[in-house]
């Protein structure tokens, strides 16, 4: 068990170091996400009642796009630099490779979110930096990343990787993104109360289900 976790961490740590070397991905994702935030914010009409809904929607739209770019980029780097065979030849279980990728993708996204949330907190004038919103974001991000990592592993192996990933990824994460939007706007609403714990529980269950299924299916995705 300990070696398994070490292997998972070795793989994620390698991805993080690679990214630290160039920081290309973090910067480009941030530029795109902030641009997206400006566009959506200007396009959506302002009304006091809808602030929470608007904020939640815009934020999750941004996170969805960011996670799509992160999971894709991470696998393309792996594929282009050494090819997937480079990891397959190692004495590491396939699901450890998958979990390693999930962890590095998750860390990338958490970094992006830690910039995105204070920023939108200011831009939308909504208190986003609360424990409940953080918990919701963490739980939902795990599920989104878990699904994205599996689909990215498949997509890089097809003829049209840049088309295949969004086609598979976006419809697949609709349930969890909808649940996250719903939970976020509830969390922002002070009158919603303690029922928010239920929402977080649903998100955690969804994420857990996705990550478990995907880890099993990943064994078949890279089976050459």
């Amino acid at each position: 068990m300990k070696t398994y976790l070490t292997q998972v961490w070795d793989i994620s740590y390698k991805d993080i170091r690679l990214e630290m070397r160039t920081r290309q991905m973090a910067v480009s994702v941030l530029v795109i996400v902030i641009a997206l935030m400006i566009v959506t914010n200007l396009a959506i009409p302002k009304s006091v009642d809808a602030t929470f809904t608007t904020t939640a929607t815009v934020i999750w739209l941004c996170i969805l796009i960011a996670s799509f770019m992160v999971v894709m980029r991470n696998f393309v780097i792996e594929y282009d630099q050494i090819g997937f065979h480079g990891l397959i030849m190692c004495p590491v279980p396939r699901d450890a490779i998958y979990l390693g990728k999930v962890v590095s993708n998750l860390i990338f996204l958490l970094v992006i979110e830690s910039i995105l949330f204070p920023l939108s907190s200011i831009l939308f004038d909504v208190p986003l930096l609360t424990p409940t919103v953080t918990a919701i974001t963490g739980m939902a991000t795990i599920g989104i990343v878990a699904a994205g990592t599996l689909f990215a592993a498949i997509s890089v192996n097809t003829k049209a990787r840049e088309i295949m990933l969004p086609v598979l990824f976006f419809p697949a994460v609709i349930p969890i993104v909808l649940a996250a939007v719903d939970a976020t706007q509830n969390a922002l609403n002070p009158s919603y109360g303690a029922k928010i714990l239920e929402d977080i529980g649903v998100l955690a269950a969804l994420s857990l289900a996705i990550i478990a299924t995907s880890a099993i299916l990943f064994n078949f995705a890279v089976d050459e």
Partner: peptide
């Protein structure tokens, strides 16, 4: 131990 036509090395490392 295997060496294919790709050396399996990360370019940025």
């Amino acid at each position: 131990g295997i060496l294919t036509h790709r050396p399996f090395l990360y370019e940025d490392f």
